[in-house]
Design a protein around this nucleic acid. Sequence first.
DNA 1: TTTAAATTGTTATAATATAACATCATGTAA
DNA 2: TTACATGATGTTATATTATAACAATTTAAA
Lengths: 132, 132
Amino acid sequence: MHKEHTLTKNQQIIFDLIDKSPEPMKAYSILFNVQKKGIKAPLQVYRALDKLVEIGKIHKIESRNAFIACHNSSCQVANATAFSICEICEKVTEISSVGLSKYLANFKDKDGMKYSKYNLEFFGLCKKCTLK
Amino acid sequence: MHKEHTLTKNQQIIFDLIDKSPEPMKAYSILFNVQKKGIKAPLQVYRALDKLVEIGKIHKIESRNAFIACHNSSCQVANATAFSICEICEKVTEISSVGLSKYLANFKDKDGMKYSKYNLEFFGLCKKCTLK
DNA sequence: TTTAAATTGTTATAATATAACATCATGTAA
DNA sequence: TTACATGATGTTATATTATAACAATTTAAA
Ligand SMILES: [Zn+2]
Ligand SMILES: [Zn+2]
Ligand SMILES: [Zn+2]
Ligand SMILES: [Zn+2]
């Protein structure tokens, strides 16, 4: 479960926008959409994004340079994330699988190294795009 | 195993550079390093990088916007990649684990969707940095 | 209340990546 | 061999993503 953080004004504006969006949002698209609320510069957006990622309210989809709200109580403060990405329509879904997160949290490499954090992105076709 | 491709001149120059590098290389650092060999523009670099990624000779480390040569015969043409990344020294290692790749290749989400491709990035401290 | 830490606002700039178009090389089919 | 398709190259310009630097303000502890 996420620790509760009181979001600041900018953070709240930007989180609300991302949270309402059905698809991941890019930083400059966010900027465009919040300019009427007084957020005028890229840095204001990036600072809010950094914080929101840090506290686990949103995640960055690295392969797309885009941000999505977290709807998964099991990804502890952004330390363990998994997504499926449709290569046609670009729909992104956060994967919530106890089996997967357990497997990855316990994964040790050859040297016995254990990792504190991971990000996994699966690519394929979503249901809708498979039928086409 | 990788299908053999005959690399073109630019592709070969850029692959050789990345292959020799002990750490992932960024596009503009590559550009700087190959300018004396006649590759002068970003596009020439990005085109070679795209092709090398496509045929599986190199991989992109998405969280770092950097490129590393593949030394793992089991990642079929860039479709299934896993890396460990040290958050202090930024050392990146390609993970070669039959167990992990089998697990991920067979992973199905809630909807029974199977994925054709994935990229996994683990973060933590490498051996050297753990001892410090 | 004082003081440190976090957040904000602002301008400028750095770093990463692609568009558009002309040319050249290579292989394949008529 | 010629004609054609395909892929690779060269080049200029531009789009997209992200951070540096610094001043001012707000917030929350000590
Ligand atoms: Zn999440
Ligand atoms: Zn789709
Ligand atoms: Zn590989
Ligand atoms: Zn390290």
